[in-house]
Simulated assay, not measured.
Amino acid sequence: MAMHVTDVETLENYELKLTFNNGVTGVVDLSNALWGEMFEPLSDPLLFRQIRLDPELGTVSWPNGADLAPEFLYDLIQPISNMDQ
């Protein structure tokens, strides 16, 4: 099964709450991943919060064209238990 993001919610401090198609839900901290030409602009909290689910890519993307592979996001995820949701 190809990995893809099915739900996204922005949190504080460049964190995302993500759900994947295998049912795993957790938090990804991107504060250390916002470097390089495409990602440095996302250090602006207003732009970062403009994230959207991109069903064609199966991941998340931003208006400036930045996107992250779902496998990369999955490797960073800190799963949350059902009680924490």
Rank of each mutant, 00 (worst) to 15 (best):
M1C: 04
A2W: 12
A2K: 15
M3E: 10
M3Q: 07
M3S: 02
H4Q: 07
E12G: 12
E12C: 04
N13W: 00
N13V: 02
E15K: 10
E15R: 11
K17V: 00
L18A: 05
T19E: 14
T19F: 04
F20R: 06
N21S: 04
N21I: 03
N22Y: 03
V24Q: 07
T25M: 08
T25W: 06
G26T: 10
V27Q: 10
D29Y: 05
D29E: 06
L30D: 05
L30G: 05
A33E: 14
L34D: 10
L34N: 13
W35S: 15
G36Y: 05
E37L: 10
E37I: 09
M38G: 10
F39E: 14
E40F: 05
P41Y: 14
S43F: 13
D44R: 08
R49S: 07
R49C: 01
Q50N: 15
I51K: 03
R52I: 00
R52H: 06
L57K: 14
L57P: 13
G58P: 11
V60L: 02
P63A: 00
P63C: 02
N64E: 02
D67C: 01
P70I: 07
P70H: 01
P70S: 05
F72V: 01
F72A: 10
L73E: 01
Y74I: 03
L76Y: 07
Q78R: 13
Q78A: 08
P79K: 10
I80R: 14
S81Y: 07
D84C: 06
D84Y: 13
Q85I: 10
